[in-house]
Design a binder for these strands. Structure first.
Lengths: 120, 120
DNA sequence: TTAAAACCTCACGTTGATGTCAGAGGCAAG
DNA sequence: CTTGCCTCTGACATCAACGTGAGGTTTTAA
């Protein structure tokens, strides 16, 4: 498939896909005329990339990780890196929970007094 | 207290504190010579701001929220906004959990086969 | 009193993941 | 064969939350 197809299937912009390639996250073959061609597997690859981005990993970190995923093997260094990221995510989850609860407190504190009298 | 004191107490840079003021998040009085002066309460205010930043809220959003916190009252609009942010945070927590588990899968998948043979 | 340390206001620099635009070539349909 | 959409490669623009440095004043401690 071509880049536009992959873009619509993953809901990721064409620009972003080219960026992923530039960062070494996503490979493509080229047609004779130079257009990018992707396998169906690219859809899942892009989804994985998005997930890792969503978890706060940088392109550089993801680029270091993906070879492990592909080879299904990790070096001690990359395992350490993976574990460090996991821990960071756990910390972030904990912080988010605190923030969410804090936000709920605010919502409650500002709503409770007199619900029918909230103009101010 | 002066800005340096607040900075060291909150571990937030002086530049950041000035930025918060610029964004309307943090108020200060001024000495005769123009230096910023803060109440003790500013420490908690900064912590709250940090927490909300940590939860992914933007300066603009926080600026809309803080008056509610101060007045302990929210308008229907701001309550809606608060709830929307809370939901967004919940979504993000869910995504992070998925990503973390995914990362764990990767760790396991790349570690298990033969732990003593991980050179590649 | 004098020198270091803190503070002030601009104002430009940084970083990462894109957006966007320009100029040019490619491809299926009528 | 041409119209219209897709793709290509640059390359500059964006946005947020600061960092950083210049040039100048203020406070503090010796």
């Amino acid at each position: 498939m071509r880049i536009g197809d992959l873009a619509s299937m993953t809901r990721v912009s064409v620009r972003a896909l080219r960026y992923y390639e530039e960062q070494g996250l996503l490979a493509s073959t080229r047609s004779e005329s130079g257009q990018r061609l992707y396998e169906n597997a690219a859809v899942n690859r892009v989804r994985l990339i998005q997930q890792l981005y969503g978890a706060g990993l940088s392109s550089k970190t993801i680029a270091e990780l993906l070879p492990c995923v592909d080879a299904k093997v990790s070096t001690p260094e990359s395992r350490e890196r993976l574990a460090a990221e996991r821990d960071r995510i756990n910390t972030q989850i904990a912080e988010l929970i605190i923030a969410r609860d804090r936000l709920n407190d605010i919502i409650n504190a500002t709503s409770r007094p007199s619900p029918e009298c909230d103009y101010v």
